[in-house]
């Protein structure tokens, strides 16, 4: 599956604010990766997907969001979204239980090159409108709130 086959986002869940945040995040993107290469992801492309959290894996070396996204047939497809390490996400406002199964979220990712349903995390908009960054390849400078 290539970028062209990325499931169509759910329009009503994507706010203009979220898109502006995503674009700003991409513009500010600097290579800051953690323990492994992100060559497997299309770092110069992005996709926005909306779905329901199946699992939030708060683990080393990298955290993962397992997201159920409606596929072309309407059946949910499970996407794996790779984030950075817990120690880095904490500095960006994340907590181990920020996401719970069943949460509806919108996520911007760099998709996998090989077309499988996965991507590298860029940013997320939670159901309550909270926007969180923490890209493993993004700027990790301290945020103003810290």
């Amino acid at each position: 599956m290539g970028l062209a086959n990325v499931p169509t986002p759910v329009p009503k869940l994507i706010s203009i604010r979220a898109l502006i945040t995503a674009v700003a995040t991409l513009v500010l993107c600097l290579p800051a990766k953690a323990h492994h290469s992100f060559a497997g992801f299309e770092m110069d492309k992005s996709a926005t997907i909306a779905g329901t959290v199946k699992d939030f894996q708060w683990v080393n070396p990298h955290c993962w969001i397992q997201l159920l996204v409606p596929g072309a047939s309407g059946a949910p497809m499970e996407w794996s979204i790779e984030m950075s390490a817990p120690s880095g996400l904490v500095r960006r406002g994340w907590k181990p239980k920020t996401l719970k199964p069943g949460d509806r979220i919108v996520v911007v990712i760099h998709p996998l090159r090989d077309g499988r349903p996965g991507g590298s995390f860029v940013s997320a908009t939670l159901a309550d409108g909270t926007e969180l960054g923490g890209s493993p390849t993004g700027d990790t400078s301290p945020q103003p709130k810290q």
Binding site: A39, K54, Q66, E78, S80, R116, P117, G118
Partner: peptide, 9 residues
């Protein structure tokens, strides 16, 4: 470097 996707269909 590989990427393991337990949820891949």
């Amino acid at each position: 470097v590989t990427v393991t996707l337990p949820g891949a269909k």
